[in-house]
Amino acid sequence: MASLTIKNAVKRYGNVEVLKGVDIDLEDGEFLVLLGASGCGKSTLLNMIAGLETVTEGEISIGDRVINDVHPKDRDIAMVFQSYALYPNMTVGKNIAFGLEMRGVPKPEREAAVFEVAKMLQMDHLLDRKPSQLSGGQRQRVAMGRALVRRPKVFLFDEPLSNLDAKLRLEMRTEIKRLHKRLNATMVYVTHDQIEALTLADRIAILKDGEVQQLASPAEIYDRPVNMFVAGLVGSPPMNFITTKVSRTEKGFGAEIYVRAHGAEHPILLDLTDHSTSVAPFVGRDIVIGLRPEAITQAGVGSVETQSFASEVDVTEATGADTLCILNWNGKEVMARVSFGYAQIIEGTMEFAVDMSRASLFDPDTETRLD
C-alpha cells in the first residue's frame, strides 16, 4: 500500500475549469470518500488518479512517485466501477483471475490468489458460475475480488453501490468497511450518498464546483461544517437554518425567533452565550443559526442546558426508531427529531427542548461558519 498526494490539481476541458486546484494528502491505509452532487468534479478527480483523464495542472503522486504521465496499467491501482464491468462469457473465477493472467502470473499462483480472495468475500462456492447467474450484490463482490486479487497500492471505487437496492447497499457497505479494516488498504471512494460517506470514510472531501469545501473526519464535518453548503449536504434530514438578529442579554447574547404555538406566534429568545466570541461582532445584525433535527427534541431529554418551550406540530413523519416533527419557526418549516413513543401523543402544541450548545452559526453574507 502507499500514500496518495494530490497537489494543486486542475482539470480543464477547453475554457471550462472542472477542477480548480484540489489539494489532498492521503496517508498510507487511509479511506477517503469524495462526496458531492453530480457535476462537482469527484469522478473526474478519481479518473485523474486512475489515469483515465489527464492532469491539466498540478501533480498526483502515489508514494514518492509522480504519476501524471504514467500509463494507467503501470500505476499499480485497481478500480471498482458502478457497472461491475464483468466478462459475461467467463466464470467468476476467470473474471477474478483475468488481470493476473494478463500480467503473466503462473497458473498455480493465480488459482491460489483467486481462492484466497473468493474465500475472503464469502463467494468461494460461486467460482464456476457465470455473471448472469449471480445477484447484483454477488456481481459487485466479483468486481471487488478482481481488484483485491492484484494487491494494488491504491483502490479506487466509482459509486460501486448505486445500482443496488437499499438492503444490498447496507450489506456491501459493511463488506467494504470490513475489507478496509482487514487489508489496511489505501482507498478512494466516490459517492453522492452522504450515508455511505459518513459510515465508510476516515476522512471526507466535500466538493462543489470543482473545489474542496471541507476535508475532515465524518464527525467534524457533521458537527462543525465549515459553511452552509456542507451543513446542508451532510445529514439526513438536513440541518435547519434560521435567520435572526443577535442581541445583548443579561446573560450575554441571544437571538429572538417567533414560534407558532396555541394558534399564534410567540417570541422566544434563544441563548447564544456559549457562542459569545463568535456573535459579539454581530450584535444588531443578522446571523444564521443551524440546528440539526436531533438538537430539537422532546422536553426533558438531553443536556440540562437545553431551553424548553412550546411549539405547534404541523406534521409528523414516523421513521421507525424515532419520528420527525415539522414545526413553524419564523414562518419557516423546522424539523425536530423525537422518540417514537413521544410522537404518538402529539396533538397540536407540545413542549420541545433546544440544545443551543450544538448550534452552528453562519454569516448570512458569506455563508461561512462563525465559530
Results as ranks from 00 to 15, higher is better:
75 R>D: 04
238 P>D: 08
354 V>Q: 06
72 P>R: 12
201 A>T: 02
146 R>W: 04
220 E>M: 14
236 S>N: 14
237 P>L: 11
365 D>V: 15
81 F>H: 11
85 A>H: 06
270 L>R: 12
78 A>K: 03
140 Q>M: 07
248 R>V: 12
22 V>Y: 01
334 V>M: 13
287 I>V: 14
49 I>Y: 01
156 L>I: 10
267 P>M: 04
34 L>A: 04
128 D>Y: 05
227 N>W: 11
346 I>G: 03
271 D>T: 05
361 L>T: 09
25 D>M: 01
26 L>E: 00
286 D>R: 05
194 Q>S: 10
304 V>K: 07
42 K>E: 02
150 R>P: 13
192 H>M: 12
210 G>E: 04
86 L>N: 01
203 R>N: 11
294 E>R: 08
283 V>D: 08
98 F>C: 04
24 I>C: 01
163 N>G: 06
355 D>P: 00
184 N>K: 15
227 N>A: 09
177 K>P: 00
118 A>T: 08
171 E>C: 03
188 V>P: 01
247 S>T: 15
356 M>T: 15
369 R>V: 08
158 D>K: 05
197 A>D: 09
11 K>S: 02
222 Y>L: 10
70 V>R: 06
130 K>W: 13
108 P>R: 10
114 V>H: 13
243 T>C: 03
225 P>S: 02
22 V>H: 02
261 A>Y: 07
195 I>P: 00
210 G>N: 06
125 H>G: 01
248 R>T: 14
227 N>S: 10
178 R>V: 00
105 V>I: 15
114 V>T: 14
348 G>D: 07
78 A>H: 07
57 E>L: 07
12 R>P: 00
153 K>W: 03
150 R>Y: 07
204 I>R: 07
149 V>P: 03
138 Q>R: 07
314 D>E: 15
74 D>K: 12
82 Q>P: 00
17 E>K: 09
158 D>I: 06
310 A>R: 15
288 V>I: 11
276 S>F: 06
163 N>P: 05
231 A>S: 06
91 T>P: 06
216 A>W: 03
142 V>T: 13
169 R>W: 10
311 S>Y: 03
344 Q>I: 14
25 D>S: 05
348 G>N: 08
173 R>Y: 11
249 T>Q: 10
250 E>H: 04
90 M>N: 01
360 S>G: 03
269 L>N: 14
203 R>S: 11
143 A>R: 06
